[in-house]
Design a protein around this nucleic acid. Structure first.
Lengths: 338, 338
DNA sequence: TTGAAAGCGTTACCAT
DNA sequence: ATGGTAACGCTTTCAA
């Protein structure tokens, strides 16, 4: 591997000069510049980021820690992050925690060793909110490295964040059903240990109240964001013959479980129960299996997270910012961006 | 940020000693070891990977360059790579090229600067096979850094690779239909500029020949791996009333486009045309929308790629290895792993 | 068992 | 406009 010294020697100049042409910094004679550049070109010289980082006492690297790389949602987020990373000449290190708190800890430690400038993190759900906050807070508080939390809130932590309008999504979903004249509206909720699941539920409740409807507890089912649990719930509902007119479904897998449950009971979509799902499932669109939903721009979420991080890096002392990604409604009348 | 020197000072030892305890190398007295370790612990000291890399003249980093981070397939692959990366204490830098040859070039250059130990690459499809090979070959030939090519073959390149048994997949798909007694079997192919599309087609043709059936060109449609094109093809097929008994569909989006086309014509699955898809679409399973398909272990592909890279790193002079990921058939009788 | 010192490939300051 | 040199934080001989 070539070094700046060798280039200098070949060009008959000093390392300083080579460094200057490399970094377009300081004065350098046009003649020598082009001479040096030619040699760099000819020999395919590529400066060592490692050495640069050490000398500059900083890297241009950011770390992204996600809980489920195999989940299409995070693919989208990562694509969004990558886009901004790219535009700003950063380098992106990625870790997958598999929703495992231990791995998350290890990932963060390694980010620390790598001296990344900042971290974009979606916390694992292997532990409760409070525990998570504590553990991560302790781990990172001594580091000066800024963090942007994505999608899953954790308490008592001073970092910037990008979250969905979860309350809003529940609200809009319920409201749409109300506007269609439904009165008895239930919900299959997510894992109520997660804040966003609670928020979505709150939104639904609020919409009901605002329209003078009452929430009937027997029609609120805890689906745990699990397709299987939701499928079971759905089947029991149908079999028992006791179900609401309409349902709000808490996320994509809830919707999938629900649809599966219906199919297993030989029911068509919207045959007896109207529903609005939170989250869009593109593949269902592709097969012409459309349903009303409230969704959002996942890739945009990644972009925003990275922009927020860069903003923080440029302005370390600024107040905390939380970006709420707004809902996009896709109802049969056609999609609307709110 | 703490340095090894400060730790040394606090412990009343030299940097060398601290380095030794850090790396579990050389002799160090048990007493001093624990003393040093305590200080490291207390102060949350984390050695700088940058400095280590420079001193050791190598990194523990590998680069992954993918063309479509937003595509669930690459999420799976990445998850597989990440798993092995993790187990072997590597660090993973990720770039998304968006199928853009320029960006791919830039990504590779930056990997070079980062002095990654190796690269896992799925080439962009923005350019032809030959061009791609040439461009990438020229770019990387001067580097000693090993590459593992994933999923998309490029010609005349000396690197290890992990690909699917594309021929096999086409063969198995067609054969399954033949075994069900179908005689007039067509295919909606992929983008025939891509080798794997051609291979899948070849497999189909071979299966037909092997079973004494003739391929009728009018039933071979070029779907370009595009859902929209495939949807159109399907609708025309149905409208014209002229279609084969059965079809082989070249990949997941081809299948989606086909299903959509059928639905838009008010047809049920398998109502008039039997089909076998290449690629599995998990979401369709989740809603109980099963169909016969030939698929493979995507995550396993990522794992294999990383294992291959590590293997190469440990054994730089060994002959080239190409791993072919075998097909998994999921037919209504139940899934079989071949 | 420990320490001193050279070296890794850059940058950046200070001279010239 | 250019060069010399210290410094970045660590590893690794070599001596003691």
């Amino acid at each position: 591997m070539m070094t700046i010294g060798q280039i200098a020697e070949m060009a008959g100049v000093s390392k300083s000069t080579v460094s200057r042409v490399l970094n377009h910094s300081g004065y350098v004679n046009e003649g020598t510049r082009s001479r040096v550049e030619k040699i760099i070109e000819d020999y395919h010289y590529s400066p060592s980021a490692t050495a640069q980082n050490l000398s500059r006492r900083e890297t241009n690297t950011i770390g992204v820690v996600v809980p489920e790389l195999e989940n299409a949602f995070f693919g989208e987020v990562l694509a969004g992050v990558a886009e901004i990373v790219d535009q700003n000449n950063y380098t992106m290190i990625v870790c997958n925690t598999g929703n495992n708190a231990e791995k998350e800890k290890a990932a963060l430690e390694m980010m620390e060793q790598q001296r990344v400038k900042g971290v974009i993190l979606t916390p694992a759900i292997g532990y409760s909110d409070a525990e998570a906050a504590k553990s991560i807070r302790i781990q990172l508080k001594n580091l000066k490295i800024p963090v942007v939390i994505v999608d899953r809130e954790i308490k008592d932590v001073p970092w910037d964040g990008v979250f969905y309008e979860n309350f809003e999504s529940g609200y809009l979903a319920a409201e749409h059903l109300i506007q269609q004249g439904k009165k008895v509206i239930g919900m299959i909720t997510g894992d109520m240990d997660l804040k966003h699941a609670r928020e979505r539920y709150r939104g639904y409740v609020q919409a009901m109240e605002d329209h003078g409807l009452t929430v009937r507890k027997e029609y609120v089912y805890e689906g745990m964001y699990s397709p299987d649990i939701t499928c079971e719930i759905t089947k029991k509902m149908i079999w028992s013959g006791d179900f609401p007119e309409a349902l709000v479904l808490s996320n994509n897998v809830t919707t999938l479980g629900f649809i599966k449950g219906l199919k297993e009971c030989g029911q068509e979509l919207n045959e007896q129960i109207a529903f609005v799902g939170i989250d869009h499932i593109p593949v269902l669109d592709m097969i012409g299996y459309q349903y009303d939903c409230v969704t959002r721009d996942m890739k945009g979420m990644g972009r925003t997270a990275m922009e927020l991080l860069i903003d923080r890096l440029e302005n370390p002392k600024r107040e905390r910012k939380i970006y709420m990604i707004s809902c996009i409604t896709k109802f049969s009348k056609g999609g609307t961006v709110l």
